[in-house]
Structures are given as structure tokens and as C-alpha cells.
Computed example of a mutant assay.
Amino acid sequence: YAVPSWGPNFQESLYSLFNLAIRIIALDTFKQALTASAYSFLGTTGTHANNMDVLLKIYDHIVHYCFCLLYMKDGHNPGSVEAAGKANPQYQASGRLTKDRIKFLKHNAYPQQYQDLIDSKATSDDELDPKGSRVNGRAVCFIAKQPERSAKAEAFICKLDKLCELAAQLQSQQHTDLCVVPPANEQNISHYLAIPFGMPLDYFDPQFYNTIPHHMHAWAAVRSVTILPDPALSFTDHPDERLSDSAFNKKYLPGVLDSGYWFIDLDELDAAITAQDEDDTEENTE
């Protein structure tokens, strides 16, 4: 077709001569691939290879609706589409890591409060070493810093991951990548800044927590704690690891609340908002 690179022009109508030519090229090439069984591994039969009505509808929807939306999105925020595309594998990796952590905690009968600390949104995105380093054939990943995570939570997660890695090695298994925690002053900030909600209070760094909007306070954290005052004692069969959630909170929650957290209860916040609305209504009535 003597076209150096395929691509529609979204600044022109779907029915412009250029876009019509681009559509014909795409559909004709696709039909040739279908009839040549290029997609047989997907279970295609080629039944609709010559059904132009169906092919045109599929093409117009994918190219001039789905792709056009991405084009417009990138126009408003350059680079956002590429960033989102790169993020998908990382989100999937975070999801797998979250499941692995919870599976380990359940399998080893660790308390529910430990599982409450594990959430996919609270899982950092790992960045492959730009130098392409490998150890025993495994790609090296650097763990990024979650800005909202407290030092206690960071230490807890690092210790959990070391135990998961050890368990995998003892079972002649290994994780796909080798995760490395850089020194704090060299650790990059995670690309995903959306914070998890409904987390135990001690997951959050108090300075970070106190700076977020009031209503986010109420959604972000619940009135509970999960980590021993010294996170190094986690996973050591410390007697307090066997406490029930209520007993653990009774013992340690007051100290955490007094350590600088400006905790806002959701029910209390809603009650305050309702009271303020009622006062405003009375003033307007008068």
C-alpha cells in the first residue's frame, strides 16, 4: 500500500478520504491475516472474514471511539495514556504480591490484624533496575516508597516479605523477581499516590495523615492498630501476637492515638456535618 506507517487522523472526520483509505488498508490486511490462519491460535474460524458490515462496525468502534478517546485524553494530559499502559502490569504485580502475602499469613495462622494491614493499594510498585541487573537469573526490582506508609508499617512489610522469600526458598520455589529495598534516602516515591482506605491507623505516617483533608481522615483509617510498638518483634511469636483484635487495641491503641495522630471518626464527622447543616438551616429560617 506504500504507506510508511498506519495511523488515522483524529482531527479529521471518520469519512475523510485519508481516514477511509486508512480503514480500507487496515481491514484488507486483517482479512488477509484471517484467511491465512494467522489468528488460528485464538480459535478463530474465519466465518466473518468477508462480512464487511461486521468488520466495519468493529473497526469504527475500536479505532474511532476507543482509540480516539485515548487520543483526546492524551491531548488534555500529555503522556497520561502511556503512563497508564505501563502501569497495568505493575498493578497486576501488586495484586499478585498482595495475594501471596495474605496466603502466607493465613497459611501460618498469623492474626487477622496482620491481614488487615495488607491491601493492594498499600502495596508499592516495584521498579526494574534500569541497569538490567539479575541475580541467579532473576530480575532485580527496587521497591518504591509509599509516602503515606509509617516507618513501623514499612519495617513490618519488609520483614513479612523476607519471611515469604525464605518460605519460598525452603520449598524450592522462588518469586519471579528479586525485590530489593534501597536505603531510605535513595528510595524512589511510588508512581501510585492514591492512598488505601479503611486501613489500621498505625499504617499511616502521622505527619502524612494529619495533612490530608478532614473527610479523608475518616475514610482512610479506622480506629484500630495492628503492629507491635517495636515492629522488629513481629513474627517472633510474641505473646501479644496471640491477643484478640479487641484486646490488642485496648492495650496499644491509646498509645498510638497519643503519639501525634489527629484521628477523626467517620460517624463523629458525619454528626458534626449534620449539626452544622441544621444550624445553617435555622439561621436561614430566621
Score class of each variant (00 low, 15 high):
Asp129Val: 07
His76Trp: 05
Glu283Gln: 10
Glu282Met: 07
Phe156Gly: 02
Met52Glu: 14
Pro196Trp: 00
Leu17Cys: 10
Val3Cys: 10
His76Asn: 12
Lys73His: 07
Arg138Asn: 06
Lys145Met: 10
Leu97Tyr: 03
Asn88Cys: 12
Gly43Met: 10
Lys121Thr: 09
His191Gly: 12
Ala247Ile: 00
Gln207Pro: 05
Lys250Ala: 09
Leu228Pro: 00
Gln32Ile: 14
Lys162Asn: 11
His76Arg: 10
Arg242His: 12
Cys66Met: 06
Tyr209His: 04
Thr176Val: 12
Thr45Phe: 13
Val256Gly: 00
Gly43Pro: 14
Asn88Leu: 15
Ser80Asn: 07
Leu166Ile: 04
Leu201Ser: 03
Phe204Cys: 08
Ser234Thr: 08
Ala155Cys: 05
Gln169Cys: 12
Thr35Val: 15
Pro183Glu: 04
Ala275Asn: 07
Trp219Ile: 04
Tyr209Trp: 04
Phe18Gln: 13
Asp237Trp: 05
Gln276Gly: 05
Tyr252Ile: 03
Ala272Cys: 10
Asn19Ala: 03
Ala26His: 14
Asp116Arg: 01
Pro200Ser: 08
Ala232Ser: 14
Lys250Gly: 13
Arg101Ala: 08
Leu14Ile: 06
Asp126Phe: 13
Gly137Tyr: 02
Thr281Phe: 10
Gln11Ala: 06
Ala168Ser: 13
Ser40Asp: 14
Thr274Tyr: 09
Asn9Met: 14
Phe142Cys: 11
Pro200Tyr: 00
Cys164Thr: 04
Met72Pro: 04
Glu148Tyr: 12
His107Met: 08
Asp267Ile: 04
Asp116Val: 00
Pro130Gly: 02
His217Ala: 10
Leu56His: 11
Ser94Cys: 14
Ser244Asn: 04
Cys68Lys: 15
Asp74Lys: 05
Pro254Thr: 08
Asp277Phe: 13
Ser124Pro: 11
Thr285Met: 07
Lys103Tyr: 12
Thr176Ala: 11
Leu34Asp: 01
Ser259Glu: 02
Ser172Phe: 14
Arg23Ala: 04
Gln112Thr: 06
Ala144Cys: 06
Phe248Pro: 00
Arg149Lys: 09
Val225Met: 00
Gln90Gly: 09
Ala221Phe: 02
His76Thr: 04
Asp205Gly: 00
